[in-house]
């Protein structure tokens, strides 16, 4: 296990390098002058542009820039944005909000998705199964922003149950509906995955054995069937934590939440690339690490998996 972990960590490095390089390259090398629109209506004075270019290393070749970026990241120095505000400060404000939103979303996914999947898988072709199949189909088809605007319009404008936008501190109660929106797609996936897994395992020999042992139906389903069926579901949920954070861009936009997504979006549209690069890299890192953790978790959940 230890050796496997180390090997996986080593494999992570080229992917991380490749991805961050890609982000750096895309962001800095593609056309468009990031400093062009920074001085109001008039073009910026050359002295300002060249000073900025020098500060952010844009006058250096790409590989050197990338090297500088890596050195900075490794030393924990995320730099400043074009307005000279430290990126770390901005992250510190936004990060907790996004984490809260993402965790809440995972909780919703897990609770609703798994229960719906189990119920529909146990009674295949029954009423609940049909309801779950159809509602997941709709959730999978509705783009997140449609779900978002729809709920905002219905609950916020028509029925006025929630405030349409979230306040700056983003308390948990106000985040519930946005988290539901963020979770909607994965919730549908979770429900379906759980259902498939339950259906497959339900006819398996070990479940038959459990019944033959004279266990109560509750125990057969709740212990034997569920424990096996949830392995792929939990790994799916784990993998998705990473992508939820970046998926939050749209949800945060709709509900005006000041999290990472909103920060990133404003930075991109404002061409403030010094924020884009470290945040995007961080999101990728979170994504890759959560994938690795999930793989290791898989080994814990399923004793048959052996790492060599």
């Amino acid at each position: 296990m230890g050796r496997y972990t180390i090997r996986r960590l080593l494999q992570l490095i080229p992917v991380l390098l490749g991805t961050t390089f890609l982000i750096n390259y895309m962001v800095w090398q593609l056309p468009g002058d990031p400093f062009a629109g920074r001085c109001g209506q008039r073009p910026c004075p050359d002295s300002y542009v060249s000073a900025m270019r020098a500060q952010f290393g844009l006058d250096q070749p790409i590989l050197l820039q990338y090297w500088q970026f890596l050195k900075n990241m490794l030393s924990g120095n995320l730099g400043v944005d074009f307005n000279q505000v430290p990126v770390v400060t901005q992250l510190a404000d936004a990060w907790p909000i996004t984490i809260r939103l993402a965790l809440l979303a995972v909780a919703i996914e897990a609770v609703i998705g798994i229960s719906a999947g189990v119920l529909s898988g146990l009674k295949r072709g029954g009423f609940i199964d049909n309801v779950v199949t159809i509602s997941t189909l709709f959730l999978l088809s509705l783009p997140v922003f449609v779900t978002g605007f729809l709920l905002q319009w219905l609950l916020g404008v028509q029925f006025q149950i929630i405030t349409p936008t979230v306040s700056d501190e983003a308390p948990i109660m106000e985040l519930i509906v946005p988290a539901f929106v963020l979770a909607s797609l994965n919730m549908a996936f979770t429900a379906r995955l759980t259902r498939t897994s339950i259906v497959e395992n339900r006819r398996s020999d070990y479940v038959r054995t459990a019944i033959a042992k004279g266990l109560t139906n509750r125990r057969v389903v709740g212990v034997h069937l569920l424990r096996n069926s949830l392995i792929p579901v939990l790994t799916f949920l784990g993998t998705e934590v990473g992508s939820l954070m970046s998926g939050a861009i749209i949800t945060e936009g709709i509900f005006n939440i000041h999290g990472i997504g909103g920060l990133l979006y404003r930075a991109i549209t404002g061409q403030d690339y010094t924020i884009v690069v470290p945040i995007a890299s961080l999101l990728v890192l979170v994504y890759l690490v959560s994938n690795l953790l999930v793989d290791l978790l898989y080994g814990v959940l399923d004793p048959r998996i052996r790492y060599e």
Binding site: R208, T209, G214
Partner: peptide, 24 residues
């Protein structure tokens, strides 16, 4: 019937690898 299973009548299956629960 449940209580008879295991106590009164019990069964051994052909393929023990798939008949035993892999995760316990």
């Amino acid at each position: 019937r449940r209580r008879i299973r295991g106590e009164g009548i019990s069964m051994v299956f052909q393929d023990a690898l798939s008949a035993l629960n892999p995760v316990f």
